[in-house]
Simulated scan of single mutants.
Amino acid sequence: MSRPTLPALDVRWLTDTTTTGERVTVPGSGDLQRVDYPIPPEIGHGWCDRLPLAHGISLFQGVHRFRPEVTGQRVPLGEFRFTFPEPTLVIQTIQGGTICHQESYPHAEFIYQPGHDFFRRADALQVIPLIEASADSAMTALILAEDVLAQLIGEELAATLIARLGLETRPVVKVRPIPIRVSAPLRAALSLQLQGTLQRLFAQSKVLEYLCLLSAQVITPDLAPPRLQCRQDRIRELHDYLTHLEGRLPSLDDLAVQFRMPARRLNTAFAEQYGLPIYAFIADWRLNEAYVAIRDSEVALKVLADRLGYSHVNHFSRSFKRKFGYPPGSLRRGRRVANDETGSEPDEV
């Protein structure tokens, strides 16, 4: 079935200080297309490559490189608007760094990083991605119509995959924990070492490999060898346990006993599935959760520090500033000013 290339992309760049915020159009193309991001050189640089494949499938890869001076900041890339010709599934995975999405269709905000992939089911998108400048990153997106997914893996399996990912309604956006090994073929699909037909065939083979792995992971985990599946189940249980746990974290030895796996193997298996060792992952996870809590609520910083397992609010403030580039009190004051709120000063302790 012959399909046109995707329609033009409507962008209002937020990094380009030479414009007045007017929208620009990135034209559609039937060939590999590169678009340089208008990031000021004192911040860094970046670009995106887009490759249309057979049956209207498209690959999109954005690369972000930042200077050390902006470490801890979140850089708003632009406001992207896109209308799909039919109901479409978009899957995004990241290598390195962290990305925050401010979604307008539907209204939502998500943070995702290696080990957590982003899923969209909609007929359009309107989003502002904010890229964390603490690390270089690359985001790869797969875009395919729902009926193409059904052709590739079968209608019943496609419907089950959408349901297991929590995408039954439309429009909907979700972030789901997906092992890095599952997303690896997608991240490798757009090869710039190849050209022409070979480049497209390689990309299509990697897309099919990824869809098979994703389906096996989400729908039919029983296809994995029993011992491997048992280990994966324990790591998922550990992830769920830690992301719902407040206060001080157990020691690695205690976790090893609780989840019935040697400590070193437990830490290694967790890193393989979620991209970081246990304590690095949870420290980053908790700081992202703290960012949202400070921005959206009036919870006292001391209470928040206790929940996150810090022995003193000053330790929490230092960790927060290392990650985001400013102390937590500044985030709360900035939100109040932006909302024109009045009242007492934020509680710093």
Rank of each mutant, 00 (worst) to 15 (best):
I153C: 11
L77V: 13
L301E: 08
A8Q: 07
P85E: 08
A263I: 00
L130R: 11
A280L: 05
I178S: 00
I143L: 14
T5I: 02
F80A: 13
R170D: 01
V11D: 01
C48I: 01
G329R: 03
S205H: 08
A203C: 14
F60H: 15
I43E: 11
R335N: 01
A290S: 13
D136R: 01
L331I: 07
D16A: 03
G275D: 00
P277Y: 08
Q232Y: 01
A122F: 13
T88H: 06
T160W: 03
C230H: 15
S29P: 00
L208E: 00
A263E: 07
H107W: 06
R295P: 01
A133M: 08
D347Q: 09
V35E: 00
T83V: 13
G343L: 00
Q232S: 12
T83F: 06
A150L: 02
V303C: 06
Q193I: 03
D340V: 08
D31N: 12
S104K: 11
I131G: 04
L211G: 07
G72W: 05
A300P: 07
E345M: 10
T342E: 10
L157A: 15
G115A: 03
L142K: 13
Q61M: 04
I282E: 02
V292P: 00
S134Y: 02
E156M: 06
I235R: 03
T93M: 02
Y241S: 14
R295M: 14
L161F: 11
D16H: 00
L167R: 05
T243A: 05
F119Q: 06
